[in-house]
Simulated scan of single mutants.
Amino acid sequence: MTTSKVPFWRCVPKEGAGRFLLPIMPAATVGPEGAPHVMGGVALAALIDAMELESELPLQYAHVQFLSPTQHVEELEISCEQCGGGRAIAQYAASAHVNGRPTHRASAALGAREPSEQTLFAEMPDVPAPDESEERAHTYPVAPGGLLDQMDYRIAAEDNARGLQAIWTRSRAGFAVDAAWLAIISDFFLGAHPGARGPGSSSLDAMLRFVQPCEPGWVLSVTDFGAYSRGVVHGSARHFSEGGRLLAISSQSGVLPRTPQASSEA
Rank of each mutant, 00 (worst) to 15 (best):
L53V: 08
L53W: 01
L53Y: 00
L53G: 00
E54W: 00
E54A: 09
S55P: 01
S55K: 00
S55Y: 01
E56C: 08
E56A: 14
E56F: 00
E56S: 11
L57T: 03
L57E: 03
L57S: 01
P58Y: 03
P58Q: 02
L59Q: 06
L59M: 12
L59W: 05
L59F: 06
L59H: 07
Q60C: 14
Q60S: 13
Q60P: 05
Q60F: 07
Q60E: 11
Y61E: 14
Y61W: 15
A62E: 06
A62N: 03
A62H: 07
H63K: 04
H63I: 12
V64A: 12
V64Q: 01
V64M: 11
V64T: 12
V64H: 00
V64F: 02
Q65K: 15
Q65E: 13
Q65F: 11
F66L: 10
F66G: 02
F66M: 09
F66P: 05
F66H: 07
L67G: 06
L67M: 09
S68K: 03
S68P: 00
S68A: 13
P69H: 07
P69R: 02
P69A: 05
P69L: 06
T70H: 05
T70L: 06
T70Q: 05
T70A: 03
Q71P: 00
Q71M: 13
H72P: 00
H72Q: 13
H72R: 13
H72F: 10
V73A: 08
V73M: 07
V73K: 02
E74D: 14
E74I: 04
E75A: 15
E75N: 10
E75Q: 14
E75D: 04
E75F: 10
E75W: 07
L76P: 09
L76A: 11
L76K: 08
E77Y: 10
E77A: 15
E77S: 13
I78L: 14
I78Y: 06
I78F: 07
I78C: 09
I78D: 02
I78H: 05
S79H: 04
S79R: 09
S79N: 08
S79E: 12
S79F: 08
S79A: 13
C80S: 04
C80Q: 04
C80N: 06
E81P: 06
E81Y: 04
E81A: 15
Q82V: 15
Q82R: 15
C83P: 00
C83R: 14
G84F: 13
G84L: 11
G84R: 07
G84D: 10
G85R: 07
G85P: 10
G85L: 12
G85N: 07
G85Y: 09
G85S: 12
G85D: 09
